[in-house]
Simulated assay, not measured.
Amino acid sequence: MKAIVDKDTCISCGLCPSICPDVFEFDDDGKATAIVDEVPSEMEDTAQEAADSCPVSAISVE
């Protein structure tokens, strides 16, 4: 499973790193980014929760 953040859509609200800090953090540009190439299996549900919680739907988890 892979998490992808659309930086053009991201509004830096902070929900994704607060929900799933093992997968998301803010980059130097102030936008969220996925910090893992593959979401660990034990974090898949939490990563999906972060994606579902994004107010602008900037995150896809595939």
Rank of each mutant, 00 (worst) to 15 (best):
K2S: 12
C20E: 04
I4M: 09
D27F: 02
A47N: 06
A3P: 11
C10R: 13
D45S: 14
L15I: 11
D22N: 13
D29M: 06
T46C: 13
V5M: 03
D28I: 13
T33K: 15
D45M: 12
I35F: 10
V39G: 11
A51K: 10
V23N: 06
E49T: 09
F26W: 02
V39E: 06
I19E: 00
V56H: 10
D37K: 14
A34G: 13
V56S: 07
C13H: 09
E49R: 10
T46D: 09
A47K: 09
C16F: 04
P55C: 02
V56L: 03
V23G: 07
L15Q: 14
M1V: 13
C54N: 05
A58H: 11
I35E: 11
M43W: 11
E38Q: 13
Q48I: 07
T46I: 10
A58M: 05
V23H: 10
D27Y: 01
I35K: 15
D52G: 06
G14T: 05
I11M: 15
C16G: 04
P55E: 00
P17I: 03
I4C: 09
S53P: 00
M43T: 05
M43A: 07
E42P: 08
S53W: 02
V36K: 10
V5G: 01
D27V: 04
E42I: 08
S12V: 06
T9K: 15
S60Y: 08
D27Q: 04
F26S: 02
T46M: 14
A51M: 05
K31Q: 12
P17A: 01
C10N: 03
C20L: 02
I19L: 06
F24H: 08
D8W: 03
